[in-house]
Design a protein around this nucleic acid. Structure first.
Length: 223
DNA sequence: AAGACGGGGTT
DNA sequence: AACCCAGTCTT
């Protein structure tokens, strides 16, 4: 039970970003530098409770067919449903319609770059709002999903039951956020959580955090 | 504070 | 065949 050095947090983030450079997922179209805020919003709505692999199957064709909220409103609901149903969670069809209506009616068809305005959009919660700001507008904000919450709670020994909604996760995530790298930072956490620090049977052997991690020291001492 | 939503990928 | 997935909305 040693006292934590004050720089463990930034040490971990440095290692995490290094890991991301080498092992992060490349070529995901919604991560492209020229992806519009609307394309980012579309991706985030699709990615809710849906694997990136699955979204990859429909994303390119979708954003080509529906580049703007207006183009969604001009499409019969049945046809839009056909394009979204393969992802499951069919209520998303309604989210796309209603969010598009809101964008056109209240924001001239543009995605707002303000947290509270994003939160008013149908289907947009705390995670999606933060994600759009980070990836669509290059803002230095943290976005905490289940992956981020799991990694944070393990590495820093927070309550194992801590959930994405817990304020503590957002405070810590914001605290560790490196300047001008908000987008990479969030993506690094997510890729790391999906590939190494998995929900079940995490791959601690290849974890860049090493002995820094409370979880590994407490539950997998031999690595 | 729980429960519902959901088809497809992965094991 | 069971389990999980870049959450959000509704009881």
């Amino acid at each position: 039970m040693s006292t934590e050095p004050p720089n463990w947090g930034t040490d971990f983030v440095d290692r995490l970003l290094d890991w991301y450079e080498e092992h992060g997922r490349r070529g995901l179209p919604w991560r492209a530098a020229d992806a519009s805020p609307f394309e980012v919003l579309v991706a985030e709505l699709m990615l809710q409770q849906t694997s990136a692999r699955q979204v990859l199957n429909v994303y390119d064709a979708f954003v080509e067919t529906y580049p703007t909220p207006e183009s969604i409103l001009e499409t019969p609901r049945e046809r839009l449903a056909d394009d979204i149903e393969p992802l499951g969670l069919r209520k998303r069809t309604r989210y796309f319609y209603e969010a598009s209506e809101q964008l056109v009616a209240e924001h001239d068809g543009a995605v707002p770059n303000d947290r509270s305005e994003l939160l008013e959009l149908r289907g947009v919660g705390e995670y999606t709002a933060a994600s759009v700001l980070a990836h669509g507008f290059e803002k230095d904000v943290a976005a905490v999903d289940t992956n981020v919450a799991r990694v944070l709670s393990r590495v820093f020994g927070l309550d194992r039951e801590t959930e994405p909604e817990a304020n503590e996760n957002w405070v810590v995530a914001e605290l560790l956020l490196p300047p001008d790298r908000g987008s990479d930072y969030v993506h690094a956490f997510i890729d790391f959580g999906a590939a190494v620090c998995t929900a079940t049977d995490p791959n601690c052997e290849s974890c860049p955090a090493g002995p820094v991690c409370e979880f590994r020291r407490n539950e997998k001492p031999t690595g």
